[in-house]
Design a protein around this nucleic acid. Structure first.
Length: 573
DNA sequence: CGGCCTTTGAAGTGC
DNA sequence: GCACTTCAAAGGCCG
């Protein structure tokens, strides 16, 4: 049984792993690490400060979440703590999810984006339905990501408000609680990468792989060299030594595990070698692309690995099968993972990248650009309109950092530029429609505010999302018009509070201290964009932000700062 | 039947 | 260096 510990350094929770992270982490991570450490410490005391900081980081990029996790890895305490933590975690993985005692649990709950826990039962965490919320809070040594600590704002913190909101008690996966422990355990079992044909990770790479994985958990490798990792019997229909390569797929929008025979795989390797250094050329040449059947896929990132592993479990726990919805759940679960847990996946992903890099030295992510030509084209069509179709520049670009005083308020607050919006909203009509169509990822915590329009637009017209949402809705529960429920089919045209307040980050949304002036609120919204009755700022509108915010709050962890539900309303600035 | 949806993260491009 | 885009997995849904 291939367990992580077999190859040394696989004690995922051990200090070794942490060291690996720390040592190999890029300087950026290092830097962030220290920052986060400080942040974490201070955050326990001063949530506001943490909030501010995270808010600042948040604007950097949509990868803002990473700083909250990666850097921390290097700061994880020695295994002693980790071990104890894991023990506890296995016992009650979600224990800390639902508010109980102490600031940590509270913040954790917040981070998880758990439902309102204002009152027990009503505020059941997203996937914490087990009634033992805080029984096993994460060890203090774990540290808490800014967005976790940031109860109020943090709750949503960097977590993007889900497209498929699961209001309290709505979580459709009652059995997930134990799942978490399984997940943790899975790291020590071969099941982490489903070995069943087509199910997951296997030993896809040629045995000639010139890398040493001795120090790495072999079962971490999706790209593990067959020579190093005995193929699972039946892994490949073509024989134990002819593993199919997950990273190599035949052309197609969706990848099925390639049914590669030996010759094909060999050819792949040949191609790969030939492609070394000329990947771009291949990209440019359609013919070449055609010939280049094997598609070397990107190595999976940490979250993808996590998803791959957990998807089946989540699906198994519920009837829901729509990936869009599942992914939302997984996204939340991902955020609910402890740092150690996430670190495992980050490490795993890092290893995969390394392996991938070694196997395909000349490969570049760019090689895959345009692989899904149509899809890309489509997205690009929209891009110009939203991000620059208008010649209007955002304040940042317009005045530069030197003249921030010239910036509009939203820009100064790193929110959506109102000037830009005003000038570029020629297409508002459509956007409005789309936006109203669903609650989407409103209040995207990961996407920079300025991206809200885009991200929203993208997520707005999600048929799948809608259906998924409906399917996610608690069958019997009284579903409040939370962002989730606000997601209505286009025909319903229910305004989404989250969506409408997208210009605000979750942090700000719940920042009682700095409620944007009313004037700003007006600026942030475009009256014309909201069909009658959908204007979120129309106080008279039953579906207005103000009206709905309170309900939305229900998805907010009680611990988010002052447990005063009303404060959330403030968020609607 | 191709594309969309959804998630996070990595990496690429463009300015 | 920042902002933005694409792709990675997955499977139901939609036009």
């Amino acid at each position: 049984m291939p367990h992580v510990s077999s190859s040394g350094g696989d004690d995922l929770g051990s200090t070794d792993e942490v060291k690996v992270f720390k040592d190999e982490g890029d300087g950026e991570d290092e830097k962030r690490s220290s920052e986060n450490l400080t942040e974490e410490k201070s955050s326990l005391i001063d949530l506001t400060e943490s909030e501010e900081k995270s808010g600042g980081n948040y604007t950097a990029s949509k990868n803002a979440t990473r700083p909250d996790h990666s850097p921390v890895f290097g700061k994880v305490e020695p295994s002693a703590h980790t071990s104890s933590f894991n023990m506890g975690y296995l016992v009650s993985p979600y224990g800390y999810a639902n508010g109980a005692a102490g600031p940590i649990p509270v913040s954790m709950a917040g981070k998880m984006g758990l439902g309102p826990t204002g009152h027990p039962g009503a505020g059941l965490p997203f996937f914490c339905h087990n009634g033992d919320p805080m029984s096993q809070p994460p060890p203090a040594h774990m540290g808490i990501p800014p967005y976790q600590l940031d109860g109020k704002a943090g709750s949503m913190g960097l977590t993007r408000p889900p497209m498929y909101p699961f209001s309290t008690g709505q979580y459709p996966y009652p059995m997930l609680s134990p799942e978490m422990s399984q997940v943790a355990a899975s790291w020590h079992t071969p099941t982490m990468y489903p070995l069943s044909p087509g199910a997951g990770f296997r030993s896809p790479y040629p045995s000639t792989l010139p890398i040493s994985t001795s120090s790495l958990p072999t079962d971490f490798y999706r790209f593990s060299p067959t020579g190093l990792i005995p193929p699972h019997p039946g892994l490949s229909p073509h024989g134990p030594h002819l593993p199919s390569h997950p990273a190599i797929v035949t052309p197609g929008p969706k990848q099925e595990l390639p049914d590669l025979n030996h010759s094909r795989y060999a050819r792949t390797q040949v191609d790969q070698k030939n492609n070394v250094g000329d990947g771009k050329n291949n990209q440019d040449s359609n013919n070449a692309a055609d010939k280049k059947k094997p598609h070397i896929k990107k190595p999976l990132n940490a979250f993808m690995l996590y998803m791959k592993e957990m998807r089946a479990k989540v699906v198994a726990e519920c009837t829901l099968k729509e990936s869009a919805a599942i992914n939302q759940i997984l996204g939340r679960k991902w955020h609910s993972l402890s740092r150690e847990e996430q670190a495992k996946y980050y490490e795993k992903a890092r290893q995969e990248r390394q392996l991938h890099m070694q196997l395909y030295p000349g490969w570049s992510a760019r090689d895959n650009y345009g692989y899904g030509t149509k899809k890309k084209k489509r997205k690009k069509e929209r891009t110009p309109v939203e991000s620059g179709g208008n010649s209007m520049k955002k304040c940042r670009a317009r005045y530069g950092l030197d003249q921030q005083s010239q910036w509009c308020k939203p820009c100064r607050r790193k929110k959506k530029c109102i000037r830009y919006m005003e000038a570029g909203d020629t297409n508002d009509g459509n956007q409005s429609d789309d936006n109203l169509g669903s609650c989407g990822s409103m209040g995207d915590a990961h996407t920079p505010p300025e991206d809200d329009a885009e991200s929203l637009n993208q997520s707005m017209s999600s048929p799948g999302g809608l259906s998924a949402l409906s399917s996610l809705t608690s069958p019997g529960g009284v579903v409040l018009p939370s962002p989730s429920t606000s997601v209505a089919s286009p025909s319903v045209s229910v305004a989404s509070p989250y969506m409408l307040q997208s210009p605000l980050t979750p942090h700000e949304a719940f920042d009682v201290k700095l409620p944007p002036p009313p004037q700003q609120q007006q600026h942030l919204q475009h009256p014309p964009r909201n069909p009658v009755g959908t204007n979120p700022h129309d106080i008279n509108n039953p579906l207005s932000v103000n009206q709905l915010t309170g309900q939305c709050v229900k998805n907010e962890p009680p611990d988010s700062g002052p447990k005063d539900p009303t404060r959330s309303i403030i968020s609607v600035t």
